[in-house]
Amino acid sequence: MQKTVIRANSPWWRIPFREIWEYRDLLMLWVRRDLTAVYRQTIIGPLWFVIQPLLTTIVFTVIFGAVAKISTDGIPHFIFYMSGTIFWNYFQGVLNHGATSLVSNTNILTKVYFPRLIMPLSGVFIQFAHLALNSVVFLGIYFWFLYHGTAMEPNRWVFFLPVLILQTGLLGLGFGLWVSAATIKYRDLRFALPFLVQLWMYGTPIVYPAKLVVKPLLKWALWLNPMTAVVEFSRYALTSRGSPELWGLGLSWGVTLLVLVSGLFLFNKVQRTFVDTI
């Protein structure tokens, strides 16, 4: 018979992985619920998730490409901006989902118990569905460019793309856990978040190539941003252009794991009694 012991001050470092596994059905239903509910509510349904990055890409192409004439390393503007946007959207989506998961689900969390990590974790999968949808559109455009003989070619690194996608998800989750733990204490952080994320995007080589940043200190700062490596390497894999730095990739993974593990611990500590303060 299952035995549960409830004790004060359960250790923050004990992440209930087994329990999460037992609740995997809930996780999957949660993902499905979110997707169906979202798609049913909007008139154009899933189309919205395709239109949004396309519009962003068009805006970037016009402003940064045509008007500001920022270099894209010889990569077609559309491909350059859209690849970055898709990855960034995934990161941002997971981050936002994680960040608001505790505060926006209080009505459920104060009524029933299940491993709290399910909430931010579901964001990784929900956003992945949007990413997959966008990737299909992107690949269509990509192959059109390839077919018309644009000066770019994929290389062996394309097999590394799934790893980059995974990294993006984990990174978004890690930061999301951090923010959600912090928003329990400080509600107004939620309002600052979109702005901070926006700034962060400009600190990532999405509308400009990493190559443009040459000052050693700035370059370090740029590559310390874990999303830099993700964007640069994914672009390099698809076009064989850009300036992928292997040390930067290592650094990026280091930061990712650090953020993720510390985020998990922090979240695990906060979730024990967070319902007392909301």
Binding site: Q2, T4, V5, I6, R7, A8, V112, R272
Partner: peptide, 18 residues
């Protein structure tokens, strides 16, 4: 709330079998 594990106790212990 404590018994259904929605929040953690400050002290003490509960054992639930089942």
């Amino acid at each position: 709330k404590v018994l259904s594990r929605i929040t953690e106790p400050t002290a003490g212990e509960v054992e639930l079998r089942g």
